[in-house]
Amino acid sequence: MSVTKLAYYPGCPSETTAMEQEMSTKAVFEKLGVELVEVEDWNCCGAAEIEDPKLVHALNARNLAIAERAGLDIVTPCSICYYNLERANRALQEDEGFRAKLRGIDPSLEYKGTIKARHILDILMNEIGEAELSSKVVKKVNLKVAPYYGCYIGRPPTTAFDDPDDPVLMDKLVELIGGECVPFSQTKTLCCGGPLMMTRADIAFAMARKVLEAAKNAGADCVALACPLCGMMLDAKQPDIEAELGISIGMPVVYITQLLGLALGIEPNKLGLNKNAVETKEILGRVK
C-alpha cells in the first residue's frame, strides 16, 4: 500500500445531508490505516452552480494551496468536488500567469501545482488496491447491488479515472466484498438529475426515476453510489419522487463506503446506516 496519509476535503453536505457518507468514509479509512487530515478551513468548490471557470479555479486554488502546504494529495468523497478540484488543479498547473495573479490577490492563494486531487473510489481501488482490501474483509456483504457512478467518475475525459461508458471500479469493489452486481451498464453512468432539483424538479425526478426503476427491474437489493448529490436525489428525495409521480420504488440507496465498512466489520451505526432516508435494515440482515 503506497498511501498512508491524505488531505481530506469533506465538501459542504458532509455534516448535513450526506453525513452518512462522511461517517463511513472516515471509519473506512481509519480501519484501513490511512490517515485523513482535514483541509484546514476549506471552502466550497463551487459545485455545479458556479459556472465561470475562472471563479471555480480561484476558489479551488485556495483548497489546493492549503493541502500543498501540508505536503499531501487531496482526497474527497464527492464526485463534483473531485471534478472541480482536479480541473482547477490542471488549469493552475498549466497557467503560470493565473497562478501569479492569484498570488498577487492574496499570499494564501499561492499554489505551486505539486499535488493531485483524487476521489475516494480512486484511492481505494488504485492506491490501496484490491489485494490489501481483500485481506481486511471480515464479513460477506451478500447483496445484489446496482453500482451507480453518475457523471464525474468516468467523465469528462480530462479528469476521469474510470471508463466513460462502462466504469468498473465500484463493480469490482462490490464483488470483492462478496456482493453481486446486477446488470446495470445501461444506467450506471446516467445523470441523477441533481443539478435541476430546485429549478426543474419535473426533469430531475424523471431522471432519478429512471435510475431507481432500472435498479429495481434488474433485481437489485440496493443502489451503491459515491456522490452526495446522487445520494440526495436517489435516497433523500426518493419518497418525494414516489409521491409526486404516484409510484412505489422503495429502493435502499447506500454509499459504497457504507458497504465496504460493513465488510470491514465496522458497526452499522458508525457507518451512518441509520441516516439513509430509505430504510437499510433489510440489507443489514444480509451481512454475515
Partner: peptide
C-alpha cells in the same frame, strides 16, 4: 437552462468541442 452538465456530450464529441 436544462442542461445537466453531465458531460456525456463532452466525453463523446469527436471534435473536442467541450459542449457542456
Amino acid at each position: 437552462w436544462i442542461c445537466l452538465i453531465c458531460q456525456t456530450c463532452t466525453a463523446r464529441c469527436p471534435q473536442d468541442v467541450r459542449i457542456a
